[in-house]
Amino acid sequence: MKLFALFLICLPAMVVAQSREVDPDDLRLTIEIEELPAQPFQQEMILLTIHGVYQRHITQEKLEQPDLTGINWMQLGEDHWFESRLNGKTVKNMRRRIALFPETSGKLEIGAFQHHLTLLDEENKWFEHTIRSQPITFDVIPVPQTKQWWFPVRRLEIQDSWSNAPDQLLPGEGVLRIIRVSALGARPDMIPPMPELTSPSALIFPHPEKRLVDLTARGPEAVAFWRWTIKPRNDVSTILEPIEFSYFDTATRKSEKAVISAQRVAYLPDETDQPAQVAQDAPAQLRPGLLIICGLVSFLVSIAVLVGKDREFSGVWLRRLFEKYTLLYRLRRGVRQNDLSTVRRLAQSLDHQNIPDDVRATLLSKLDIHIYGRTQQVFDLKEFYLRFRRSIH
């Protein structure tokens, strides 16, 4: 009896809630532009929030966006649905965030967003209803007169990394340089073009740049990877010239200059040129790796003797064979230690010593993407080693 009485009390409210007559206060849709420290320039990011509040049960919905003439835009993730309290009642909310990048200056208008809703009437039948937001306008300033690349950002981060120590290269070895430019509040195409890396005495091989974008609650974060392989022309060292580019800090409203300092690239001194050092009664220690290499030397010498019966013995052939198996041993040790930079360096050395192979090229490309790209895929280093080892002849 008490439950029936409670049902009778709630019935009028339920009937009103599921009526074909829609109270405008029950369904509201607004759009709002974030406050900026000053009027925005062209291409400067502006965050737009679309917010809906719904006191009716919704069975289906579709948000229609107006034509944003003169504005480039990016939606920051999926629509966010959540509940809140309004006048003591639980109501549904929808929030969508969009990053706007004005392409033209002057007064721009954002037209009305339309939210097409499917509601229920008194008989639990569906009917369509549309709510609209009010249009808003804002002013945009033209790009300042400058000969520099126009690059407005909220935050800029630069990372300069190397595949191995650039001033400790082995004779004849090259090094891979990767500069990562991360810009919050920018699209990937807004980052300046990959600069030309210069040096008075170095061989420089540029790689195709990579550009990505990460959608965050604070706006899109564009990322560019600039990559070069560098090798000194001489047997000693070389200097890479600094890299500079300008950008506009939208927080401080000032033009700034990013400078990546000069870098020395050098070979390690040849150990044969160093004076010999006399050991000071140090206790003898046998390392497992040394034992393996010694055994390998004995094995190779035996092969050389057998080969010498049929053809003239070649010291160059023996040295190359020894270098190959030494590199393979070090590569396997790097895989066990999960040392990606060492694995990449040794794999590149082995690849250069062998005839070009499509399988090795594909494996090295996947390794580079795993190390320097932003991928979430699992990379099996042991499988890489096994397939790479089979491609070495």
Rank of each mutant, 00 (worst) to 15 (best):
T342K: 14
E83K: 15
F4G: 06
F388D: 02
F384L: 04
Q114G: 03
E64C: 13
V278P: 02
G289P: 03
W228C: 04
A13D: 14
A284L: 06
G172W: 10
R287T: 02
E78I: 01
F299S: 12
R233M: 06
E123S: 02
Q134W: 09
F299W: 11
D235S: 11
R28V: 15
Y385N: 06
T375P: 15
P232Y: 10
P208F: 01
Q39F: 04
G106R: 01
D167E: 07
I71Y: 02
A251D: 07
T59S: 15
D25G: 03
E244N: 14
F205N: 14
P152W: 12
F225S: 01
K210E: 13
N234H: 10
R360K: 07
Q168R: 05
N164I: 14
Q148M: 10
Q43T: 04
T69S: 14
P40L: 05
V143C: 14
T216E: 12
E83F: 13
R253T: 03
D310Q: 05
F138W: 02
E241S: 01
F205L: 15
E128N: 07
R253I: 01
L386H: 09
T146S: 08
V297I: 07
P188Y: 05
I392M: 13
G219T: 01
L47C: 04
E383R: 15
I230A: 06
D139T: 09
L119N: 01
L100V: 04
L3W: 02
R96E: 08
R344W: 15
E323W: 04
I178V: 05
P37W: 12
Y329C: 04
T130Q: 07
S105Q: 14
V223Q: 00
A186E: 10
Q348I: 10
E244I: 14
F379P: 04
S237A: 15
D270S: 13
D23T: 11
A304T: 13
P166M: 00
P269M: 00
I178C: 05
A284D: 07
K382S: 12
I292D: 10
T118F: 03
S84E: 06
V305A: 09
A224K: 03
T104E: 14
V22D: 04
I239P: 06
F322K: 09
D214M: 11
R177I: 05
Q277I: 15
L364N: 08
L367I: 05
P206C: 08
Y329M: 06
F322C: 09
G308P: 08
G111Y: 02
F82N: 08
I131M: 09
N164R: 15
L331S: 04
F41C: 01
K89P: 00
R319D: 13
G308C: 05
R332L: 05
H129T: 07
I392D: 09
F313W: 07
C10K: 11
P283A: 00
C10G: 12
